[in-house]
Design a protein around this nucleic acid. Structure first.
Lengths: 204, 204
DNA sequence: ATAATAGTTGACTGATCGGTTTACTACGAG
DNA sequence: CTCGTAGTAAACCGATCAGTCAACTATTAT
């Protein structure tokens, strides 16, 4: 069978970046095709709609970032350290993205999922599905921290959900304020939420 | 001078509802005019762009909700009670909106502000501005709670910001999941974040 | 070599986009 | 009563929207 194509990958990559920065509705299929250097006919050869492409792009993005998460949330790392490392990673990563795209982007799941709401159920469901996967990383870290007596969290899943909500909220604030500053407070807020006993004496 | 018009009010009202449900980019000027029963010519007689209308709609919405907030966050009410009352109000209000619009809407500031990002700076700035006003209500409640020894919060502003982020995150989750359930955890999450000593023994 | 087919291309659709224009109309101040 | 004007109406603009289509092309398994 004929021809090997990279159009699919180029399209998902372009869609992810464009929609992350400009939003789903504001990004046109033509924009995506232009950035991917793929003609529209090819687009619809691989995807039956713009929504389907976005869903594929979100899944693709998860597949990429899960590797990083597996590393950061390794059970070999002390549980609270995992979270701290992750927050630090987020600051660094969002800094890179800001340089690359010109403004603070925040979380690609939350902005898109929240934007399309009930108007694109497929996309909304996909964001929910992936979010649940992410929460599991928080959950096991919290459960381990509880087991080690570092925090008191009898309901690890509920705590993880709360922490994830807080995290998303901070990311949204950073995006709207177009500033990395809110991200630097991630740790202190998370520690408060989790009831971590503060060992360090900061500042004054 | 001739004629008194309600077109302006009808337009802001329609814009608020439509954009809250469907997002900014996905809501067309024609949609807004149709719902408001106002012709496009009148639209552009009162507003010079779609963005300007949305900004006016957000301000209008603030003016309406500030009255509720003034009531809920009255200094006559014990500080933690203010927050608890507010969370309860949010559940009720989102329930009404869900019936009226058919799905969970979340926060109109956050969805829109996050959607338009840097593409509509006027709208983004307006959402930021209003958000800051809301945070002040949290801040004074937290400061009062600290003064009364109910919580330990030497930096009330930072705590308020963290709480607001958490709140926004929960609202976003409710919208994406199209469920009121996440909202019912607002209090427990907030209390954890604020370090409120739990008096009650819930459930088992 | 060639046939079957995955992939490409660009022109095309009709609808809709945000916004403009121009003529008209209703009303309140003098 | 009537005149100036705030407001209304509807047709209209070029651009862009998501999606279609039929002709074409390059590949590769045979």
């Amino acid at each position: 069978m004929p021809r090997v194509s990279h159009a699919k990958e180029k399209l998902t990559e372009a869609a992810l970046g464009l929609i992350w920065t400009s939003g789903y509705a504001a990004t046109s299929v033509d924009d995506i095709c232009a950035k991917a250097e793929v003609k529209k006919g090819s687009f619809y050869h691989f995807f039956k709609s713009k929504a389907e492409l976005e869903i594929a792009a979100l899944e693709e993005n998860w597949q990429r970032s899960r590797q990083v998460w597996n590393d950061l949330f390794s059970p070999a790392v002390p549980p609270l350290q995992r979270l701290e490392d992750y927050f630090q990673f987020v600051v660094k990563r969002q800094g890179q993205l800001t340089e690359e795209y010109g403004s603070v982007l925040g979380c690609p799941l939350c902005s898109v999922g929240s934007e399309v709401g009930s108007r694109e159920v497929g996309i909304r469901d996909k964001t929910l599905e992936i979010m649940e996967r992410y929460v599991k990383y928080f959950e096991s870290a919290i459960r381990d921290a509880d087991a080690q007596g570092l925090i008191v969290a009898p309901d690890a899943k509920a705590k993880a959900t709360a922490l994830y909500s807080y995290f998303q909220g901070v990311m949204a604030q950073a995006r709207i304020a177009n500033s990395l500053e809110p991200l630097r407070e991630l740790k202190s807020g998370a520690w408060a939420l989790l009831g971590v006993r503060q060992v360090e004496l900061v500042g004054a």
